[in-house]
């Protein structure tokens, strides 16, 4: 499986110049106080991973991967792990940059706010990718966009309906206050694992 991760990371390295440029822009805008674009680097990880699917599809890599030892399984596993690596990398870079900007501007460091902000962004991106990947494996990148749109739209409509028309009993969740980071991590981990299992199942049966 490591070979497949190396392949995905090798594809990503062509984006490094663009990332370097974005980090400079981020630092410049952050230091000049123009605007906060701290979400942009983690968001880039979505774009980067989507581009790897796009290149895979263009060169029909998935059919070739099937002919490699454990290719159907390892190519999916590697895609999820590469995604995880990139999100962590982007989050760490953004967090360190945010520390630097805050320290230069205020000579103080507001650790909790920055870390919470970055963690929230990383979790948001993980949720997006966990939702997207099974669609991409099932329908291909082009058609998956429509599927993802329908799911997100469906969730918003369904959520809106529940909030507006269903009488939700007022339950106190105060006892969860101290545990929410753990609960969140468990939920995200489960979501990612479920997403991986669905993608794997699709890829194991897929004909190319």
């Amino acid at each position: 499986m490591i070979g497949f991760i190396i392949k995905d990371l090798a594809m990503i390295k062509s984006n490094f110049k663009l990332l370097g440029l974005l980090i400079i822009v981020y630092l410049f805008l952050g230091l000049s106080g123009e605007m906060d674009i701290s979400f942009i680097l983690p968001f880039m990880s979505v774009m980067i991973m989507i581009s790897t699917f796009s290149y895979d599809s263009y060169n029909k890599w998935d059919a070739y991967a099937v002919t490699l030892p454990n290719g159907r399984k390892n190519s999916v596993k590697a895609k999820y792990l590469a995604t995880f690596i990139i999100i962590i990398l982007m989050t760490v870079i953004t967090t360190l940059s945010a520390f630097l900007i805050t320290y230069i501007k205020t000579k103080t460091l507001n650790y909790p706010d920055i870390i919470l902000n970055m963690l929230g962004t990383a979790i948001g991106i993980l949720v997006v990718e966990a939702l997207m990947y099974p669609f991409i494996y099932k329908f291909g990148l082009e058609k998956a966009r429509i599927g993802i749109f329908i799911v997100v739209f469906g969730i918003v409509i369904f959520g809106g309906f529940i909030l507006n028309y269903v009488d939700i009993p007022d339950i106190s969740l105060n006892f969860l206050e101290n545990y929410w980071p753990i609960i969140l991590i468990v939920i995200i981990s489960l979501m990612l694992y479920l997403s991986y299992r669905i993608s794997l199942r699709i890829n194991l049966k897929k004909e190319y």
Partner: peptide, 19 residues
């Protein structure tokens, strides 16, 4: 079908020994 075209022969050389 083959490796994605943004890769190089050197990238393949790094990936394949692990496969």
């Amino acid at each position: 079908s083959f490796f994605p075209e943004i890769m190089t022969p050197a990238d393949i050389a790094k990936s394949m020994p692990k496969i």
